[in-house]
């Protein structure tokens, strides 16, 4: 469980008990900013298929999905002299891939270059980003804790991890039977080590429901919760990431939903490592993996 989950529960109880607030859609008088290039890629040694997306930003309330940018030259190079060219996917406009396992080397600098005539002036615009792949230590153990709250049984997936020297930032991907549960940026699980520098910490990574009691839960929980049953395999793949990537993910998560009058700050643009006015991020990760099989105790 994240450190403030219990706070969310308390405020949830308040909302439930007071029950005054209501919502409805609203039209906002915004203006449309000119398009900028959007580049996002997370390269890792975790998959045989690496992808980088290149697209255009659009007015916030535009009715159409954002448009991919075709025909770009997308290349990743490393400080140890390797160079990988990405090819555009025929069926997904603006998506560039490299379908071989990527050998990520720790403590190595990676550079991304995207060349395209984005502004249509006849000359190539170059958008570059640099990042670093960091080595990641092994985890100590992976456990499931049974929780009984408000009459329902659920499970918390804990990873025990011993932090290393220096300021560290971590990204965690959680799988259930090989399906990635938190692949989007908005559902990514990240943490820094400010609260536990150089110590072992129990990280509460994911909250699962009990498949056998799923029907006892309200509809909104059934829609948003993953339910596990005996025999399911749970896996955590995690890596150390740069502070810049950590900031990017947390800012994306904080800004995506708009304002929070009690605990949020003023709306602010999300920081990027894409140069030349682009937005998005380029990151490289070297993952560690841990698995556990769920056996329900009767």
């Amino acid at each position: 469980m994240k450190k403030w989950d219990f706070l969310h529960i308390i405020f949830g109880v308040i909302a439930f008990l007071t029950g005054f607030s209501c919502t409805e859609r609203i039209d906002l008088p915004t203006k449309d900013s000119p398009p900028v290039i959007v580049v996002y890629g997370l390269i890792s040694d975790d998959s045989d298929y690496q992808g980088i997306s290149v697209s255009r930003s659009s007015p916030y309330f535009d009715d159409l999905p954002n448009e991919g940018v075709s025909g770009a030259e997308v290349m990743v190079s490393t400080s140890d002299g390797r160079q990988i060219n990405f090819t555009e996917n025929d069926s997904i406009k603006g998506f560039y891939f490299f379908n071989r396992r990527f050998d990520v080397t720790g403590d190595t600098e990676y550079s991304l270059s995207v060349k395209t005539d984005f502004d249509g002036d006849g000359s190539l615009d170059v958008y570059e980003a640099k990042t670093e792949a960091l080595t990641t230590q092994q985890g100590d153990s992976l456990t499931l804790e049974v929780m009984d709250m408000f009459g329902t049984t659920s499970y918390l997936l804990h990873l025990y991890l011993t932090d290393t020297e220096g300021d560290d930032y971590y990204l965690f991907n959680v799988f259930c039977n090989d399906s990635l549960l938190n692949g989007s940026i908005s559902s990514a699980v990240v943490t820094d080590d400010k609260m536990f520098p150089n110590q072992q910490i129990r990280l509460n990574l994911y909250h699962f429901g009990d498949y056998l009691t799923k029907d006892d839960n309200p509809d909104y929980m059934q829609e948003n919760m993953v339910y596990i049953k005996s025999g399911d395999t749970l896996e955590v793949r995690f890596c150390r990431i740069t502070k810049e990537y950590f900031d990017f993910i947390t800012q994306c998560q904080n800004e995506k939903g708009g304002e929070n009058p009690l605990f949020g700050g003023p709306a602010s643009n999300i920081t990027t490592n894409i140069g030349n006015g682009g937005v998005g991020f380029f990151a490289v990760c070297k993952f560690q993996k841990m698995k556990i099989k769920f056996i329900k105790q009767e």
């Binding site: 906002l28 008088p29 915004t30 203006k31 449309d32 900013s33 398009p35 900028v36 959007v38 996002y40 997306s53 697209s55 930003s57 659009s58 007015p59 916030y60 535009d62 999905p65 954002n66 692949g183 989007s184 940026i185 908005s186 994306c252 800004e255 995506k256 708009g258 003023p266 709306a267 602010s268 643009n269 999300i270 937005v279 998005g280």
Partner: peptide, 16 residues
């Protein structure tokens, strides 16, 4: 502060 633009990553939209 309202967004004047957005960018997409995966299925998520983020404000500019």
């Amino acid at each position: 502060t309202y967004p004047s633009g957005r960018f997409a990553i995966g299925g998520d939209y983020f404000p500019i």
